[in-house]
Amino acid sequence: MNGDAARLLGRWGEAVAAEDLRRKGWRLVAAGWQCRFGEIDLIAENSKYITFIEVKLRKNADFAPARAAVDRRKQERLRTSAELYLSQHPTDLQPRFDVAEVYAPDGIATRAPEIIYIEDAF
């Protein structure tokens, strides 16, 4: 898979996760928010939390769960990016870091991708 195809697939996974969050009553604040420290896939909020969400798309979990790709280094980049976001967009909501695992065996042709949402992942 070339870089463009991988990016397209990743954006599709983020859109699937964003729609799932909307169905659960969350308000999507940003998607693909970038800064000099990295990118935050999704930022969503409800009445209590502002949540920074890392979306990981995989065909399956045969090798390892998708969340395993959110290692300590990735977590630090996300924390630093979130700090910058919050400095630019102050809020009284409690920040939280979540991971959305999207399993799509047939890529974007998958009719019903499985979404496993891990709240307060790190």
Rank of each mutant, 00 (worst) to 15 (best):
V70C: 06
G38P: 00
R79K: 15
A31V: 05
R36Y: 12
W26S: 01
L84P: 05
V55Y: 01
K74H: 11
P95F: 00
S87P: 02
E83V: 01
D71H: 14
E76H: 15
L78T: 05
A66H: 04
K59Q: 13
C35P: 00
S47V: 11
V55E: 01
G32Q: 03
A30V: 02
A30P: 05
E54M: 08
R58W: 09
A82D: 03
R27T: 14
K74D: 04
H89W: 04
D92F: 14
K74N: 06
A31T: 09
A82E: 01
A82S: 12
L93T: 06
T51R: 09
T80G: 03
A69S: 14
L42I: 14
W26R: 02
Q88N: 13
R36L: 11
I43Q: 02
T91Q: 11
F37I: 08
R72A: 14
R79F: 10
F37H: 14
L86I: 10
A61L: 13
T91M: 10
I50M: 06
A31H: 02
S87H: 08
A30K: 07
R36A: 15
L86C: 03
V70P: 00
A69R: 10
V29W: 01
E39Y: 05
F97K: 04
E83Q: 14
P90N: 07
R36S: 15
E54R: 07
P65R: 14
V55N: 02
L78R: 07
L86T: 08
Q34T: 14
R73A: 14
E45P: 01
